[in-house]
Design a protein around this nucleic acid. Structure first.
Length: 293
DNA sequence: CCATTAACCTGACAGC
DNA sequence: TGCTGTCAGGTTAATG
């Protein structure tokens, strides 16, 4: 299966993998290989990072947040194809079991756009062949007011994302439930793949109008969204431990999905249906027309 | 205000 | 072999 696009669980996996080489560590050098990604790098980007310590590494939606002791936060979005790999600066293996050595990359690959070195001592390479990613620096004090974060819906794994909230958020929305769940203002962090998977698991048709998701369907929908994300995060954690033993990179996710990219295959619910692919709002949707109502 | 669509970008792949 | 065209999807600006 192809390497998938980073959604919430993948970003969380990257966060978990980066934590040991970033949290409490100081940037000793930062190098950019181009003017920017989806947006230009901030003014004096390297200068504003170098010498500063990462006090916390967190995640909001699909954004990684590296809080610095300078009062700024480094915000990283992986876009569609962003990958992060961690390498030893010296001899292989000297970093211990938190090293995820991508092996094949020396940081001079065609799409290696940003190199961070820390006093871990580790070299962190940001690779993004399609450059839909983003890196900005934002004042930590006003981070939540920033336009990137201001309109974001609740974290799907938080207690705020419950039946009461979701019913209200979907009320009056004529757009299909599939599109509504991709809207980061409704809930943040879901992408095309996990929305397809959650709707399948909850047996809800992606074509159903958002406002017409019944009260009875709300609980399964919430449960399956949370479950599929948790399972993917768990799988990501396992893969991190595997990568510590073998070559790999943070973000090289190869999950197994029930319906995504399975057009023409029999429905895994064994309802006799066949997985169909349709396009909604310009995105592929995979679902079972028989058991998703 | 709301909903839909195109644009950004490059690698992979199908078809000729 | 190599060309051309299409597709993938997170986010956002533009359009209806």
């Amino acid at each position: 299966m192809a390497v998938s696009v980073p959604e919430l669980p993948e970003v969380e996996t990257v966060r978990m993998g980066l934590e040991p080489v970033l949290e409490g560590k100081r940037f000793t050098s930062v190098e950019t290989r181009r003017a920017g990604l989806r947006v230009p790098f901030p003014k004096d980007f390297a200068k504003r990072l170098t010498g500063h310590k990462v006090t916390r590494l967190t995640r909001r939606a699909k954004y990684l947040l590296a809080e610095l002791d300078s009062g700024e936060t480094l915000v990283i979005h992986l876009g569609m194809s962003g990958r992060i790999s961690v390498h030893a600066k010296g001899a292989p293996g000297e970093l211990g079991n938190y090293l995820h050595n991508a092996g094949h990359s020396d940081g001079h690959g065609k799409h290696d756009h940003v190199l961070f070195e820390t006093d871990a001592p580790a070299r962190i390479i940001f690779t993004d062949h399609r450059r839909f990613g983003l890196m900005v620096l934002i004042d930590t004090a006003t981070l939540t007011d920033d336009k990137l974060f201001k309109g974001l819906g609740p974290e799907p794994l938080s207690g705020d994302f419950d039946a009461k909230y979701l019913s209200a958020a979907l009320k009056g929305k004529k757009t299909p439930i599939k599109s509504a769940l991709l809207d980061q203002r409704v809930v943040s962090g879901l992408g095309n793949i996990y929305v397809c998977e959650a709707l399948f698991r909850a047996s809800i048709s992606p074509k159903r109008s958002a406002s017409k998701v019944s009260a009875a369907q709300m609980a399964p929908l919430l449960r399956e969204i949370k479950a599929v994300l948790k399972e993917a995060i768990k799988a990501g954690g396992s893969s991190l431990r595997d990568y510590a033993k073998a070559d790999g990179e943070l973000g090289n996710f190869q999950h197994h999905f029930l319906v995504y990219d399975r057009e023409g295959e029999p429905c895994p619910h064994k309802c006799g249906g066949t997985i169909k692919r349709i396009v909604q709002a310009g995105r592929s949707t995979f679902y079972c027309p028989v058991c998703q109502k």
